[in-house]
Design a protein around this nucleic acid. Structure first.
Lengths: 338, 338
DNA sequence: GCTGGCACTCGTGCGCGCTGAGTGCCAGGC
DNA sequence: GCCTGGCACTCAGCGCGCACGAGTGCCAGC
């Protein structure tokens, strides 16, 4: 176990390095922080911290920089979440109010997060799996062609074309529409499959094939949409990443274009709190020199989706965590209201 | 007017520079192209081309690179559009087939374009202004709350919440829905305002306020959506931009995040053909060292939206133009089919 | 009007030595 | 036992000078 002072030294190193972006030496440390001991002592502490793997030297005769392990300790034990100031809070509210629809809410959230944290922001659209059905609409486009429109309680709309095996009368369509809505409106997606299971039985033999087709398209939509959409922004902030550009930035941009990677990234948040994944803790190797701060948000108490930011491991963790948490909370409120 | 051979020299310079990314000198030129004259002669030609502003020297004792004006001449007079090869064509078809909905089509198109051109791709969602109404749906969510869903012939779905001034019965709603659809289904957006103008007159006085509210929301949706959405991809390709990274890449990333800028960018295509805007021809100064190749695409003969790529001025124009054109054509086909 | 030759320019790469920040270690003091 | 001041050592970064060579402009001759 590290002594109190050594932890203090680590904290000072992290703070200075995050601020200056340059390796920090023992002398500079004692000058900028009231550690109450001399540089020589700090040097000894640093040697220990290095042995333990919390900090490293880029090369001999340079200062130390925190390792992933060092940041981890910093985040877990040494730093809290820095709450937003009142003006910041007001700015968040101001910025998010007045969004007209779901796309707009998500779009504004991305821009806001990117601006607040000066990093890359990622916001997942509210997930369908936990959503409920607000309405299902069926439209006849041609005798054997039906359009299925699904509307969720988070305001999301999905539509699918259905090619029917046989012509389907307007009356049958109205019948199916009514039966479907009475069964699943207000129910959770997860419950839908059971609820519609025996629906085809209520129809004439000639229509049964079509009903089955429509239903399976509906179920597909529910499943497919679990593979959720997201929006990213603030990629211009990547340019403030480090000195050794092309090599650092390229894999990050590539990773950010792959939805799957991003979803996994956010996916690893446990529902309750905030998650911070530092450097090599990220499975994707393009993101090995980045940290991800993410959190769930939702309209009720429950999280329906996640949002977060991606930045250099050398980031202001307390501030970033504060911003992410504040934004998530307010987005949740907005969704609950609408 | 420049002589035939001088144009040939310019073409050679552009081709070599695009290939090697390095200033090209007179000797190298004669070696790599069969110009039939000696380096000294080429030097004279180069001096003329430089006087005329088509090429420039980064510094004395370096080769020449094309200026924006030089690229412009190259694109207008010296280069055609390089058609896609049969395998490339097949790859395009293969990649775009099997898209399930509009989002998917647009998403695939962006990825495809980015991959083919190795540049940043921008695809605008099919515009509503030229679209026609496929169906309008009205759902009652609460006594005085209606959800309006608009479905277009390009498969786009927009929904809006409407708060009614007075409770609105299910019967009235059905009536409105029927009347609305019989009037505007299949009609162009532009014609809708006239077509619904006198609709409120057909209703009881107590419902008239609500009908008016619903209609104005509908018209708003049509107008608002003219400010269109778009999708971009392939930003990782920016890393192959040049040697002097941060300064070049940053403003580009920033510009790409501003929808307005991008829409303007694409907006300057004339409907018929392809547009190429080179370097300083782009109004936005962040894009002064990039070129934009864009073209309209649409489901019928008419263009309903635009797509294009953004890359360094030093790009393979014929190849890029070929790829952009081929993709636009096929996307048009896909939209027409669905 | 093209060509070969020639003098000139200047950016790039390399080797060199200096500087200074930062380290590790040690002996002495509280 | 822990902290401290002192000291020798290391090494990345910087500036300098130099040589190289790619590329040019100009000119006289064919």
């Amino acid at each position: 176990m590290l002594s109190e002072r050594r932890l203090e030294v680590l904290r000072a190193i992290v703070q200075d390095y995050v601020g200056t972006e340059e390796p920090v030496g023992s002398k500079a440390l004692t000058e900028r922080h009231r550690l109450g001991v001399s540089p020589a002592t700090v040097r000894n502490d640093m040697a220990v911290l290095e042995d333990e793997g919390y900090i490293a030297q880029p090369h001999t005769s340079a200062g130390r920089i925190p390792t992933d392990k060092g940041y981890r300790l910093f985040v877990d034990k040494l730093a809290g979440v820095k709450p937003m100031t009142a003006p910041e809070r007001r700015a968040i509210h101001h910025f998010l109010d007045g969004a007209v629809d779901l796309d707009d809410v998500v779009g504004r959230t991305v821009r806001l997060l990117a601006q607040l944290t000066r990093q890359v922001a990622v916001v997942q659209y509210p997930s369908l799996t936990r959503s409920t059905v607000r309405h299902v609409e069926l439209l006849s486009l041609a005798p054997a062609r039906v359009m299925l429109v699904l509307i969720t309680d988070t305001g999301r709309v999905e539509q699918r074309m259905v090619d029917c095996p046989a012509p389907f009368g307007e009356a049958s369509l109205a019948d199916l529409r009514a039966r479907l809505n009475s069964r699943i409106t207000g129910r959770r997606f997860a419950d839908v499959p059971q609820l519609v299971q025996d629906l085809p039985d209520a129809f004439e033999a000639e229509d049964r094939g079509t009903v089955t087709t429509v239903l399976s398209t509906l179920l597909e939509t529910l499943v497919e949409e679990t593979e959720e959409r997201l929006m990213i922004g603030g990629t211009a902030n990547l340019t403030r990443f480090g000195h050794d550009f092309p090599l650092t930035i390229r894999p990050v941009l590539e990773a950010l274009e792959e939805q799957v990677v991003l979803l996994k990234l956010l996916g690893e948040v446990n529902d309750s709190g905030m998650a911070v994944r530092i450097g090599h803790e990220n499975a994707h190797e393009g993101l090995n020199s980045t940290s991800v701060v993410s959190v769930g948000y939702g309209s009720g108490g429950e999280a329906v989706a996640k949002l977060g930011v991606v930045g250099p491991t050398r980031m202001d963790y307390p501030g970033t965590m504060g911003a992410v948490r504040a934004v998530a909370r307010y987005v949740g409120q907005i969704l609950a209201e609408s």
